Amino acid sequence: MKLFPSVPRHQKWMMGATFVVVAIYSISHNKEQLAEAARTHLTSSTPTVIDGDTVEFPSGRVRIVGIDAPDDDRPQLKALATDALQRLAARDGGLDCSVSMFDYALRRENQCRTDPKSYGRLNLACRFPANKASVGASMVAQGYAVDYRMYSGGAYVGLMQKAAAQRAGLWGVDYEGMRQLAVERATVPDGCAVGTIKQ
């Protein structure tokens, strides 16, 4: 069976060439974004903490990959999570953010990988300079954020479950609110390969 049987040969060639050009452009554009993110290394001893998972540096805003902290729909919890991240950053030398091998390992599935940018923010992994601890793991372990399954691959689920059981951080303030956030962020969207995500 021929595709487009009534279309002249020269138009088929033009359609094919257009497809190839668009595909090459899309691939190169995505590679440019990935390369830019890979080169990005933001560090500050006094970053501006926007909320429990977003930080402002002089050269850009960063969304910490793999976690989600409460937002404006839970204002009390958002304020507490923001304060917790500010205190940790002040105690442990600020924040150091970049694309890490760990984050590439989490991007196993094409449909659920973290894009280099979202809403004007760079999606990066962050560490505390003083002790090299993961910011994402620390926030989840202390009960101020939840595992964001489609971007973490379930990397922080064990830490989250332990924090919930111990009523650590926000789990002790509003267990049901945190449980609802965790359930929302545990959902795997349509098109994602569930088998590649830790249960």
Score class of each variant (00 low, 15 high):
1 M>V: 11
2 K>M: 02
6 S>K: 15
8 P>E: 14
8 P>N: 15
8 P>W: 10
12 K>M: 12
16 G>I: 10
16 G>D: 13
17 A>W: 13
21 V>C: 05
25 Y>H: 10
26 S>T: 07
28 S>D: 07
28 S>W: 08
30 N>V: 02
31 K>M: 12
31 K>T: 04
33 Q>Y: 07
35 A>C: 02
38 A>V: 00
38 A>I: 00
39 R>P: 00
40 T>H: 03
40 T>V: 04
40 T>G: 01
41 H>A: 08
41 H>C: 03
45 S>K: 10
45 S>A: 13
45 S>I: 00
48 T>D: 15
50 I>E: 09
50 I>N: 11
51 D>F: 03
53 D>Y: 00
55 V>P: 09
58 P>F: 12
60 G>W: 07
61 R>P: 00
63 R>N: 05
66 G>E: 09
67 I>M: 14
67 I>D: 08
70 P>R: 05
72 D>H: 14
75 P>H: 05
75 P>R: 06
78 K>T: 09
79 A>K: 13
85 L>Q: 07
87 R>F: 00
87 R>T: 02
89 A>R: 08
89 A>V: 03
89 A>C: 10
91 R>T: 14
91 R>D: 09
93 G>E: 13
94 G>H: 12
96 D>K: 04
97 C>D: 07
98 S>A: 04
100 S>D: 13
104 Y>F: 08
105 A>D: 14
106 L>N: 06
108 R>H: 12
109 E>C: 13
109 E>F: 03
112 C>M: 13
112 C>E: 14
114 T>K: 06
118 S>Q: 10
120 G>F: 12
121 R>E: 09
124 L>N: 10
125 A>I: 00
126 C>A: 04
127 R>F: 01
127 R>V: 11
128 F>N: 14
128 F>V: 05
129 P>V: 08
130 A>Q: 11
130 A>E: 07
130 A>C: 01
131 N>M: 06
132 K>A: 09
134 S>E: 06
135 V>F: 05
139 M>K: 03
141 A>S: 14
141 A>C: 01
143 G>E: 12
146 V>Q: 06
150 M>C: 05
150 M>T: 10
151 Y>H: 15
156 Y>P: 01
157 V>R: 06
158 G>C: 03
158 G>V: 09
162 K>S: 14
162 K>A: 13
162 K>G: 04
163 A>S: 14
163 A>L: 12
168 A>R: 13
168 A>G: 02
170 L>H: 11
171 W>E: 01
174 D>E: 01
175 Y>T: 04
176 E>C: 00
179 R>C: 00
182 A>R: 01
183 V>M: 10
183 V>P: 01
184 E>M: 05
186 A>S: 15
187 T>V: 13
188 V>W: 12
189 P>F: 13
189 P>S: 14
197 I>M: 12
197 I>E: 06
199 Q>E: 02
